[in-house]
């Protein structure tokens, strides 16, 4: 009961701030038209309200967040429907499917010898919709089978080069860069980033890292003895990578917040 009263008081305060902001922003509008100023005042206040509603989630779930979330999901779904219709159906499919439909939507018709083939996916698409009819809903599995089969077929061979062959191929690196004997190496040793020592060390780390990383991903052998040692080195290399990626990303993420703070304190409150 107490929380309900507190919620009502909070809602009233938010509504009051909203109104004050709307009036203030409308009054300080740059346009000659009063309607434009009032509209712009409302829009920026509403955008601020939504931003703060989303931030309120950090404290805990609350009605403001729920409202912003529902609105966001609804707007997104509506946007996706419109975008899907205009961009994918009208922009991509209609110009290849029919001349009369292209004329109707004012898009240039693309004459193609194989335009009849576009109707095969349409048949699969229609079959998918049988899912809405319980008695023949099982037919929709044909379309799902097409999607799954096509995806599997594409992935069976298509990414082998980028994910496997190129990675293996690039791992064949010289382990003794510019090697002119141990004496020469010792007499010229230096910690310079572009020096021979660092180059050799880097290549060894890459080679050992790839080897041990692969050992870590062995599923059918127990990670014991030498195999276990290699596997542990593998997981250490993985953790160094994850730590480095994590640390590298921190600053980038904070700059996102700086953008929102600029919006709140600059665009809205005009104090930045």
């Amino acid at each position: 009961m107490t929380s309900k009263i507190a919620m009502r008081i909070l809602t009233a305060i938010v509504a009051l701030i909203f109104l004050v902001s709307w009036i203030t922003r409308s009054g300080s509008g740059m346009s000659d038209s009063a309607f434009t100023n009032v509209r712009d005042g409302f829009l920026i206040t509403f955008a601020v309200f939504l931003t703060l509603s989303i931030f309120s989630f950090l404290y805990r779930d609350n009605p403001f967040y729920k409202f912003a979330e529902s609105l966001y999901v609804g707007i997104s779904a509506g946007y996706w429907m419109s975008y899907g219709f205009w961009s994918t159906i009208v922009g991509n499919f209609v110009p290849r499917a029919s001349r009369s439909l292209s004329e109707f939507f004012h898009v240039p018709y693309q004459e193609r010898a194989d335009h009849i083939l576009i109707y095969i996916p349409i048949i699969f698409g229609l079959i998918l919709l049988t899912r809405l009819l319980p008695k023949i809903g099982w037919l929709s599995r044909w379309s799902l089978a097409f999607i799954i089969g096509a995806t599997a077929g594409l992935n069976l061979t298509r990414y082998l080069r980028s994910d496997f062959i190129s990675q293996v191929s690039n791992s064949f690196i010289p382990l003794f860069v510019d090697w002119k004997g141990a004496g020469d190496f010792v007499s010229h040793i230096s910690l310079a980033a572009d020096g021979q020592f660092i180059a050799i060390l880097s290549n060894w780390v890459i080679f050992v890292g790839v080897m041990c990383g692969l050992v870590y991903f062995f599923f059918s052998k127990e990670h014991k003895g030498a195999f276990g040692v290699a596997s542990r080195i593998g997981i250490w290399i993985l953790m160094i990578t994850f730590g480095a990626s994590f640390g590298y990303t921190v600053m980038g993420r904070i700059s996102l917040l700086v953008g929102r703070i600029t919006f709140l304190f600059g665009d809205w409150l005009n104090i930045l």
Binding site: D163, G209, L214, I240, T241
Partner: peptide, 17 residues
């Protein structure tokens, strides 16, 4: 970022492939 990162990424990508 250049060296151990590349090694680990390669090992992961080979596995993913």
């Amino acid at each position: 970022l250049m060296v151990p990162n590349m090694a680990a990424k390669r090992a992961i990508l080979i596995g993913v492939g």
